[in-house]
Design a binder for these strands. Structure first.
Lengths: 144, 144
DNA sequence: TTGACAAATAAGAATTATTCCTATATAGTA
DNA sequence: TACTATATAGGAATAATTCTTATTTGTCAA
């Protein structure tokens, strides 16, 4: 039984139990707002989305919850130059192209990049949990 | 005649002329504070360093100057998770390991990584100016 | 089911990093 | 040397995030 066969609620409940965190309506609704979001939302985008369900939720709760989801391994923070932190719900191996002008991040897949070996001298000194090729330059809209 | 054989002042003067920017003492001293810095200083670190030479320089001038150096191709902004923006004076191809806990960035070289080919579908859509492998995890101090 | 308690939340204040504004100073040049 | 556009200092403003505190709410054990 893999993740895909569990519904979103069950994934969240399992992860919360593992991490000894309570299953609150806020956490549930924030998680729902992220499922199938293949973009790279900021905390504020998620906040606006969740407010439609819980009008008086605070930004702090959204921000704190997103960071706890990162700790729980449900999300990643996108590396990048931009100021508002961006989150990534896609936990599968993929790579990024970031536009230096508009800060847009474009995901792409590449099996050659996925297969890169971590150098021995790095593996022996550090615990490596993520690996990604980051390309930068100008996107199609900005290069004109 | 390559860059290495020019002294720092001359590199800066040439770049400023190219960009039609004036050669001010502030720019000169900020540039001097960066030469041979193989760390990844924040604007504030540079500000503290430069204040020893120009006690009443403003943070804004340092920040603005660093960003203009990025535009001029004298520096790069480090991709990464941390909040204070970090600058990189090493323009040669290298790769990064970033600690998720302390946000420290460790440079490493790897000729295999340097040789990675940009996928055709990316090269045809975008202008790619940078390429780097980014590893993340826990550094030696934080993994305990 | 209820009560107790630790954890989570809302609201707003505080902090942190960066950028903007404006009056003054200065580099480049004619 | 004088002119002009650019750069700077200083402080205010903005933006993003995190902290503080009083209150509320899951969870668990009786």
């Amino acid at each position: 039984m893999n993740k895909q066969s569990l519904d979103a609620g069950e994934v969240l409940r399992n992860k919360c139990r593992e991490a000894n965190l309570k299953i609150t309506p806020q956490r549930t609704i924030i998680f729902d707002a992220l499922v199938n979001d293949k973009g790279h939302p900021t905390a504020d985008i998620v906040f606006q989305r969740v407010r439609k369900k819980i009008p008086n939720i605070s930004f702090d709760t959204v921000s704190r919850t997103l960071l706890s989801f990162v700790d729980m391994g449900l999300l990643k923070v996108v590396e990048g130059h931009g100021r508002p932190k961006r989150f990534d719900t896609d936990l599968d191996s993929h790579h990024h192209f970031q536009c230096l002008k508009c800060n847009k991040i474009i995901d792409f897949c590449n099996t050659g990049f996925d297969a890169l070996e971590i150098p021995k001298e790095i593996k022996s000194r550090f615990t490596v949990t993520g690996k990604k090729v980051v390309l930068e330059g100008l996107c199609d809209s900005c290069k004109r």
